[in-house]
Amino acid sequence: MKKLSFPIRIPLYYVRGGTSTGIVLLQKHLPEKKELKEEIIRHIMGVPLEGKNENNKQLQGLGRETTTSNKAFIIDIDYQAKKVISTFAQLEKESSTVSWEVNCGNMTSSIPLVIRDLPEEKLLMPDGKLSIYNTNTNKNIVCTMPNVSPKYQLAHIPGVVGDFPEINVSFADPACSKTKALFPTGNLIDKVNGIPVTCIDVAVPMIIINAESLGISGYENPNEIKNNQVLQEKIMQIRVEMGIKMGIRQKNGTVMNEKDLAESITQPKVAIVAPPLSKGDITIRYLTPKNVHLSVAVSGGCCLAAACCFPGTVASHLYYANRVNGHSTVRIEHLSGISKFSITHDGDYIKYASAQRNAQILMKGEFFIYNPSDELEEIMRVVSITSSRMV
């Protein structure tokens, strides 16, 4: 017989940031234990609680079957430093895997809207700027909104229909997010089975490959890339071999091995690049790292734009971004349009990597968990009492 229990209620914001959707949770409403946080996020997004289910439709949660819609942020507030502490979790619809390895720039753009809905807005965003420290990468981010509160200045981005609140996202000192160097192999170009690649780490570790060297045009649709088994095998070999050479670290600091890299749902990312077809500077098909992104991630776009700033990379062979007054701008063509990225740099030092996004709070409220584990049910009684006292 099934046990009976009262549902656990988890306060959350259901949001869209850039071209991603997911949830934002406040740490004060959650248990400290990582495994219990993961259980909560699995329930909310509707992914398997354990193991795999290839046919999962996420009917029992808020996820939308795509990688870009299975994202979660947990945020806390450092009142003394007047900044937000953000921790990002990536899920996938068919498995219970929760990855804490990388950050998400698109979803980061939703955090200022959440803060503007909280009493802490005046403390954290008096001038429209929000400082965020991301624990996945141990890096700082500045999100800026036009200072017209309580109104919003609206903006349009490719891949999103309509105009929504404008947020400008800038990664501070973004190199070495998960490795020890801007070009972590020590080379601008490496070769795998004769295929030239550039490995770079700006906001996220990424491998850049010219489409031509893979035997494709670079203008393929997602299904053409997904269903090309020979191409997928080439990319997997490159990911694993170069991932080892990059020395990519997991969140706990250990270096990823071959098995870790093959199974990872977050890193390293892959950018397949080609010459532009329209008014952009370079074309991308962005893998995250196994599925094709329908536009381009903020972190991945910043990474590719940075690679265009250094002569001798796979990217700069297609487009070299001249530096004007300390800034280089790269317009990246993708499946949804053209997105512009800005790199502020001096020599090998990158001060900021930036992009304009827009975001929405789709809904806020409580998610009901009807079948929690015994441990989660017990600990959440205490968390609920404690968080209610903090309100």
Rank of each mutant, 00 (worst) to 15 (best):
Met1Arg: 14
Lys2Pro: 14
Leu4Ile: 15
Phe6Asn: 15
Tyr13His: 10
Val15Phe: 07
Arg16Ile: 08
Gly18Phe: 01
Gln27Ile: 11
Glu32His: 09
Glu32Gly: 12
Lys33Asp: 11
Lys34Asn: 09
Lys34Arg: 12
Glu38Lys: 11
Glu38Gly: 06
Leu49Asn: 06
Leu49Pro: 00
Lys52Leu: 12
Lys57Thr: 10
Gln60Gly: 12
Thr66Val: 15
Thr66Ser: 08
Thr67Gly: 05
Ser69Lys: 07
Ser69Gly: 10
Lys71Trp: 12
Phe88Lys: 02
Ser95Leu: 14
Ser96Trp: 02
Trp100His: 03
Ser109Asn: 06
Ser110Asn: 14
Ile111Glu: 00
Ile115Gln: 04
Glu120Leu: 09
Glu121Cys: 11
Leu123Gln: 05
Met125Pro: 00
Lys129Phe: 03
Leu130Ile: 04
Leu130Thr: 02
Leu130Glu: 02
Asn136Lys: 06
Cys143Thr: 08
Val148Ile: 15
Asp163Met: 12
Pro165His: 05
Phe171Asn: 00
Ala172Arg: 05
Ser177Trp: 02
Lys180Glu: 05
Phe183Met: 04
Asp190Met: 06
Val192Met: 09
Val192Gly: 06
Val197Arg: 00
Ile200Arg: 03
Ile200Pro: 00
Asn210Ser: 14
Glu212Asp: 15
Leu214Val: 07
Asn228Cys: 12
Leu231Thr: 09
Met236Ser: 08
Ile238Leu: 12
Val240Ala: 04
Glu241His: 12
Arg249Asp: 06
Lys251Asp: 06
Asn252Cys: 10
Lys259Pro: 06
Lys259Ile: 03
Ala262Gly: 10
Ile265Ser: 06
Ile265Asp: 01
Ile265Glu: 02
Thr266Trp: 02
Gln267Tyr: 01
Pro268Gly: 06
Val273Thr: 08
Pro275Asp: 11
Leu277Glu: 15
Ile282Pro: 00
Ile284Gly: 01
Thr288Asn: 14
Asn291Ile: 04
Val292Lys: 08
His293Cys: 07
Leu294Gly: 03
Gly300Glu: 02
Gly300Leu: 03
Ala307Arg: 01
Ala307Met: 10
Phe310Arg: 02
Pro311Arg: 15
Thr313Gly: 11
Ala315Ile: 14
Tyr319Thr: 00
Ala321Met: 10
Ala321Cys: 09
Asn325His: 13
Ile332Lys: 02
Ile332Gly: 01
Gly337Asp: 06
Ser342Thr: 15
Asp348Tyr: 14
Ile350Cys: 05
Ala355Thr: 10
Ala355Cys: 14
Gln356Cys: 14
Ala359Glu: 03
Leu362Ser: 09
Pro372His: 08
Ser373Asp: 13
Glu375Tyr: 08
Leu376Thr: 09
Val382His: 09
Val382Asn: 13
Ser384Trp: 12
Thr386Lys: 13
Thr386Leu: 10
Ser387Asp: 13
Ser387Arg: 07
